[in-house]
Every structure is written in structure tokens, then in C-alpha cells.
Simulated assay, not measured.
Amino acid sequence: MHELRLFTARRAALVCDRTRAINRLHSLLTDIFPDFEPALDLGNHGPLVPLTGYQTPAATRRLGVNGLEQ
């Protein structure tokens, strides 16, 4: 029973960490791309992948619309 509580507490901590990270990303996107962020569902893994490779506005512009849609 004690191990189950430890695993449950660890899982809850990981979920909170993920939520904090997504909220920080949400805040940064709003600051950098105010019109771009509402189109993304940051709760899913898919939209997060391009953001990890293209962290600046210039890099995202170079990627272009076609690159983002792929």
C-alpha cells in the first residue's frame, strides 16, 4: 500500500510539472506570437514538436506555412 501511495504521489508531481511547463509555453507564445498561439492545442503532443525545433520567430518564419502544416 505504501508503494502505491509513492507511485501516485510521483505521478501527481509529474502531471503538475507538465502543466506548469505547458502554462509557461502558453505565456511565452502569447508574448511572441499573439495570433499564433490560440490556434494550437498545447494539451496534445503534436503542436509541441515544431515548437521544440523552432524557438524563435525568425526560425518559424523560415519554416513557413507549408512546413508548419506538415
Rank of each mutant, 00 (worst) to 15 (best):
M1T: 09
M1P: 07
H2T: 11
H2P: 00
H2C: 02
E3W: 12
E3V: 11
L4A: 15
R5D: 09
R5W: 02
L6P: 00
L6F: 09
F7I: 07
F7E: 13
F7R: 15
T8S: 13
A9E: 14
A9D: 14
R11T: 12
R11C: 12
R11K: 14
A12V: 08
A12I: 10
A13T: 07
A13K: 12
A13M: 07
V15H: 10
C16K: 14
C16W: 02
D17S: 15
R18G: 11
T19V: 11
T19R: 14
T19I: 06
T19Q: 14
T19K: 12
R20L: 13
A21Y: 01
A21Q: 12
I22E: 14
N23R: 13
R24P: 01
L25E: 08
H26G: 01
S27N: 11
S27C: 08
S27H: 13
L28C: 01
L29N: 06
T30Q: 12
D31T: 04
D31V: 02
D31G: 03
D31H: 02
I32C: 11
D35G: 04
F36P: 06
F36S: 08
E37W: 05
A39P: 00
A39Y: 06
D41T: 07
L42G: 03
L42N: 06
L42K: 07
L42I: 05
G43P: 01
N44C: 08
H45Q: 11
G46C: 07
G46S: 15
G46Q: 15
P47D: 03
P47G: 02
P47V: 02
P47F: 04
P47E: 03
L48T: 03
L48K: 11
V49M: 13
V49F: 09
V49K: 14
P50N: 10
L51N: 05
L51M: 04
L51A: 05
L51K: 03
T52K: 13
T52L: 13
G53S: 04
G53N: 02
G53L: 09
G53I: 00
Y54K: 05
Y54G: 00
Q55G: 01
Q55K: 07
T56P: 04
T56C: 06
P57K: 13
P57D: 01
P57I: 06
A58R: 04
A58W: 01
A58F: 00
A59C: 04
A59E: 15
A59L: 14
T60E: 01
T60V: 15
T60W: 13
T60D: 00
R61E: 03
R61A: 08
R61L: 09
R61N: 00
R62I: 09
R62F: 06
L63H: 02
L63Y: 03
L63K: 06
L63Q: 05
L63W: 02
G64R: 08
G64K: 10
G64L: 10
G64P: 06
G64D: 10
V65Q: 10
V65L: 14
V65N: 02
V65M: 10
N66Y: 04
G67I: 08
G67K: 07
L68V: 09
L68T: 05
L68Q: 11
E69H: 03
E69K: 10
Q70I: 12
Q70F: 09
